[in-house]
Computed example of a mutant assay.
Amino acid sequence: MTVRVAVAGASGYAGGELLRLLASHPGVEIGAVTAHSSAGRSLGSVQPQLPELADRILLDTGADSLRGHDVVFLALPHGQSAALAAELEPGTLVLDCGADFRLRDPAAWERFYGSAHAGTWPYGLPELPGAREELTGATRIAVPGCYPTAVTLALFPAFAAGLLEPEAVIVAASGTSGAGRSPQTRFLGAEVMGSMSPYGVGGGHRHTPELVQNLSLAAGERVTVSFTPTLAPMPRGILATCSARLRPGIPAGEAGEAEVRAVYRDAYADEPFVRLLPPGQWPATAAVLGSNSVQVQIAVDPDARRLICVSAIDNLTKGTAGGAVQSMNIALGLPERLGLPTNGVAP
């Protein structure tokens, strides 16, 4: 089975990562690659890491360029996917790497994005309970945000098992590619090298309602989230440190940690891309660089009675493009691991 695939927004970081993965996917033929300001240029002039596709000419991002493909990936800024997706054939598999269709609550979308809610598509995080069934045969898929991918996979097994009070505190560090490729002074090398800084502090980050949505669905009740993202001096990767208070009755010592570890071991036993690390080994962004893998580790703080969960992902792979390709594979009935690397690149 070979499907013809188009990538809109191919000049950006997410678009480039999609093409890197799709170029080695044995079930894919790459069709149109599109861009906005870079339309008319060769792909090699903006994505020199893709020599096999270097001579492709970037088309203008419009429905005419994208029609006629089996699969269309939209790697566009938030708010730009909905109108374009509405012009594509209903039978085309469309995967939106932006935020337009992730949220179920229109009020949350309007509060954080300031525009009308476009709707909700099946959510492309296959590891969540029931997600694979929803994705199988789907023709529209919302790819999760990078922070929600890392945080949800760190915390959802404990919430789903009823181990935690309905609140979570999250501090996560991301590489600069998470902000996209548009030039901004605060992302210059001279600004980020040797420095870390917070942003979106006090509940202001746009991924906050997605975190609340995911963890609340897992817990079966509303979970409040305090989320502080930080910018790290690295090009890619996310390290998410998450904590929540244990419910009364859950032991806070070694017995409690053993109980939690058993829950995580069961949750991820058959997951091809999530690895619960052995006790004493902690996730590192370098270990998952360029891969669709997720590293997870847990610990119980007995004095604070809090569960600490740490996860590491590559924000461009599992956090965006890899998650999209994984969801495509499931939707089309292809082997889920097809075209997706599990080994990282080190050093």
Score class of each variant (00 low, 15 high):
A10V: 05
G12A: 14
S24Y: 08
R41A: 09
L50I: 10
S65L: 03
L76M: 10
L76R: 02
H78S: 15
A82H: 04
P90A: 14
G91I: 05
R104I: 08
A108C: 10
A118M: 07
G119S: 14
G119C: 14
A131C: 10
E134W: 01
T139R: 13
Y147H: 11
V151P: 02
V151E: 02
L153G: 01
L153T: 12
A154Q: 03
A158F: 06
E165F: 06
E167F: 04
G175D: 01
R181K: 14
A190L: 12
V192M: 08
M193K: 15
M196I: 11
G202L: 01
V212D: 00
L217K: 08
A218L: 06
R222V: 05
R222T: 12
T228I: 06
P235E: 13
I238C: 00
A240S: 03
R245D: 06
R247L: 15
I250T: 12
A252E: 09
G253Y: 10
E254S: 12
R265L: 12
A269G: 11
V274S: 04
L276D: 15
P279T: 08
P283L: 05
L289D: 06
L289K: 08
A304N: 04
A304K: 06
C309K: 02
I313L: 11
L316I: 08
T317A: 10
T320G: 07
A324L: 15
V325T: 13
I330T: 07
P335M: 03
P341V: 13
G344H: 07
